[in-house]
Nucleic acid binder design. Sequence first.
DNA 1: CGGCATCCTCGACGATACTG
DNA 2: CAGTATCGTCGAGGATGCCG
Lengths: 133, 133
Amino acid sequence: MREEQANRCVAGATDQARACTVREALDRVGGKWSIGILIAASTGPVRFTELERRVEGISRRMLTLTLRNLERDGLLVRHVHPTVPPKVEYTATPMARELYESLVALTRWAERHREAISTARAAYDRQHGTPAG
Amino acid sequence: MREEQANRCVAGATDQARACTVREALDRVGGKWSIGILIAASTGPVRFTELERRVEGISRRMLTLTLRNLERDGLLVRHVHPTVPPKVEYTATPMARELYESLVALTRWAERHREAISTARAAYDRQHGTPAG
DNA sequence: CGGCATCCTCGACGATACTG
DNA sequence: CAGTATCGTCGAGGATGCCG
């Protein structure tokens, strides 16, 4: 989770301006857990503990941190029910759901080329030294 | 740059299977410099030094490392001209150009919501403790 | 020109324990 | 239940220098 981002992209059509804008988007979801949380929260309100169960492998700490960042970026809304025991629900904003839609294109790319990439890697590792020897 | 990826996504329509597939795609371009290099190399062959100039802020080391990874994934082709002084050219593969197309959706998302995110952050930082205070 | 080797920093992330 | 606090690890990435 990037602490702050001193990442003002200059507008324009140059290569690196484009690259910066792309990274600007990627930085919102670049963390290890952001996507998993976002997807889990995009179908409806989800409670903290429910997220902890559904996002497999996440620690309590990282869940909290990632939630805070997503909330800060306006991708999640946090709603506290003043009950006892406490009940907190997180919901993805429309902006976050749009983001996921945009990521679908990327997902399809990965599926289309999964095989090719795997082959390319094997070939590369054969030609150059393979990592394990 | 992820050293290896023990990241076999299980197929399926569960939240976390989807999340894994998305991350699979993100991992190809998640590095700090991948996008910049890919874009610069997608219009035609580019030489090492030219990349070093065009991808602003990159170090020689990271340029080399990122190039190797992109080549390994089959996103770049490396062509060595056996001349002296040496001349090496990198070209984005069709697969990489497709990837860029997929990233456009993400770019547009970033542009659409840049303002909203910035505002959300400011609001969040005001309400909770701002980083510098 | 186009690298690779070495050293270092620093932030993402994990483990564990405590709390209103 | 839903966190916070503290400590430790690990690897991405930066700085610098040498080489065919």
